[in-house]
Amino acid sequence: MTQTVQAPPGAATVPPRVRRGRVKQPRVRTGVNARSNVMAYAMLAPIVLLLTIFVVWPVIYAIYLSFYNWSFYTPPIPVGWRNYVNVLGDRTFIQSVGRGLLFAVIVVPVQLIIGFLFASLVKSVSGKLATVLKVSIYIPTIISGVIASIVFVLIYNYQGGILNAFVGLFGIEKQAWLGNAETALGALTVPAIWLGLGIGTLIMLAGMVDIPPSYYEAADLDGATWFQKTFYITIPLMRNIFLYLLIAGFTAAVQQFELPLVMTDGGPLERTLLPNLYIFQHFRNDTYVGYSIAAAILLMIVLGSISAGIFRVLNSEKAVDG
């Protein structure tokens, strides 16, 4: 994991300057470097172009449109900040964002914990069994979210659902898992955790395999227990993995769309109306699209702020060398 900084060919043997803990390489201008730079820019150009066309430009244009009342049939009418004021004045939007964050707070940690435990199990077993386990845990990832939603609707069904049949064995009355405002969001978290578990587990497994065995051998010589090795070696060295999964999982969970759309359509009492579904419903029903776009941009700001906050709290650089 230790990085070695080598001086480029032809560079003067000046010791590298150290500033704020970073190694700064001496600036060297040579024909070879210039050519390398041109090649690098040429290689980067396609992706920069595609990003500009499909990411940067749509975002800029969406921001522009959010200041207009605009439909597919009438010229845009500038409305200033009114779309934003209306969105922020709509308690349904504010509640949907809060609900999305709550949904993520439930789903992501459970996914991380189960994924970590499963990855540890896979790493500790023999080759063939590990393969079976890896395939098993990955299957939900390749199942369509729509299909999974329908399957879970059947499981949760009030009349004839498998879950109610199961709880009935213990003398518990039938529950309206998706029809009751108190249980609906919780019912949605189960398929969300299940669907996202596979990819997270495999990424964690890759991170675990990458940890040098010598660390564990040294710990074994010192008589460390499984818990000590996990908390003092595995978890610290997987910090960047956790950071990635936390941010990716958090933004994906807040933006969950298929499950509430298919399973509850945001009900009951909007208790499963997550922000993306809220935006979609407005995009689908509103005559003017400025409102939906303003809501989408506000959601982008919320998610960007949270991601930046997670980056700040869990500084990835600190984990480079363990």
């Binding site: 309206a176 898992w177 009751n180």
Partner: peptide, 10 residues
């Protein structure tokens, strides 16, 4: 409340 309406729409 009386259970005359299903607890979850059929």
């Amino acid at each position: 409340a009386a259970g005359s309406l299903p607890q979850q729409a059929l």
